[in-house]
Design a protein around this nucleic acid. Structure first.
Lengths: 246, 246
DNA sequence: CCTCTTATTCACTCTCTAGTTAGTTAATAT
DNA sequence: ATATTAACTAACTAGAGAGTGAATAAGAGG
């Protein structure tokens, strides 16, 4: 479950479809199980790449197949249909980031012996995630952009986020409640709402902040986010909670 | 340029395609110019509704046409192609919210005689926008959800946001700089980044916070956001700026 | 070596989609 | 009143797109 594991076969940026096809051919010399795993992973990688850029409806199975260098019906063989493929793409890394953050929160909770700080909890939650995108390679970056889209998709976005992230998020909120025992649950939830919104635009990496700031800030610069976000949000929490409890 | 103006013909929630078609027939008794304007507006309303829920690629011209009760090629008559229609949908309300906020910021700047506060500037920026969604009816709500999608679309999202909102946003940042003269531009831009992210999830109204909070918070409750967001974000700005300037 | 299974492709089907061109009806201007 | 223009529809094209079921090829197991 290392970062590299799920990032796996995704050193693909400059590869043309043909080259990928060649690789597919030469890869044939492996066992069936390996073949299956590798092909599926390649499909997931390319689908992730395209979905992250054009969305579910903006990508055709043929587009994905072409990039992988296989016939497009093979995608139906491995994944029942397009939406199933999309779900698989999302789930693959969602479970990784979800469990990692859960662990980080548990560790932090134990380390502080049940006396967490707002900032500490947020750091555990955010940094663990951001590190994945910083060190996980192209695949994780694509997944991040995909998440941002999913989180803002009214149709099935909330459902999809819920099913993967509710446990971690509730764990975070649990810690925040401990850190702010006098704060109304309502305020904590709205605070989390702001946090997740800020995180999602970050992951979207649309490049908007680059132009807006005239190059001072860069969308890709997750380190800058890491350095600021937890402190920023913690101050926000303190503010809206103190307004009522004091 | 009132809220009602752009919200116009959008009291359409429960109408069946047939009924709309009937209306279209009876509407014929007006002048050509009126007819044109009304039909275009109806097309924009229905397109907005569908685009906001399914995205650009998730909607077909036929879907839109059916809802309006006209032949689908009429959409090609009024709008060159699908993307042009989408742009028109977005632009219609983008100019409204953009100019409104610009005015609000100008008014606030004058009222404070060049000595703005962080919170004041954020209130002018955010509340003016949120009021539109609160009082503007279904159409504005749909537009809000659409914005959230656009803002997180890597393909052309940033471009689209830039072209409509750069002036207002830079005006806001200008006020924030005045309010925090010792703060690094970098920090202010990242702070704005967080603000816009939080605003966008809000507008997306996916319902995620509802389930997550067990009903304590509701996605639709923009008043709750209005009551908290400016204060929350202002505290965040103060925090990340003080960390360096003090 | 032969059978069984699995990976992969092929040849189609069926439906939808954007968009064009030509035509129809109704308002407008003279 | 009539010629012109604008709003709108019908018919059609050309091409995707997702998905199916049969065919093939290559391993794996006995």
């Amino acid at each position: 479950m290392s970062v590299g594991a799920a990032a796996g076969a995704s050193g693909e940026q400059g590869l043309k479809a043909e080259r990928v096809a060649d690789q597919a051919k030469s890869r044939r010399r492996s066992t069936k199980a390996e073949q299956r795993a590798e092909t599926m992973e390649q499909i997931l990688d390319e689908a992730e790449n395209l979905f992250s850029k054009h969305g579910l409806h903006g990508v055709t199975l043929k587009d994905v197949a072409k990039r992988v260098g296989v016939h497009h019906t093979l995608l139906n063989y491995y994944f029942a249909d397009k939406k199933t493929l999309f779900d698989a793409v999302f789930a693959r890394r969602a479970v990784v980031t979800s469990t990692r953050r859960m662990e980080a929160l548990d560790v932090y909770d134990r380390a502080t012996a049940g006396k967490p700080t707002i900032e500490g909890a947020l750091h555990a939650f955010l940094d663990t995630d951001l590190d994945l995108y910083i060190h996980g390679g192209e695949g994780w970056k694509n997944y991040g952009a995909l998440s941002a889209q999913v989180a803002n998709t009214p149709e099935w976005g909330a459902e999809m986020m819920d099913s993967h992230f509710d446990p971690v998020v509730l764990r975070l909120i649990d810690l925040l409640k401990k850190a702010m025992p006098d704060c109304a649950a309502e305020d904590i939830f709205w605070g989390y709402h702001f946090v997740t919104g800020a995180l999602m635009v970050t992951l979207a990496r649309t490049g908007r902040i680059d132009k807006l700031s005239g190059g001072i800030c860069r969308s890709e610069d997750f380190e800058a986010i890491k350095a600021r976000m937890a402190a920023f949000m913690a101050a926000g929490f303190r503010q809206i909670c103190s307004a009522k409890s004091v």
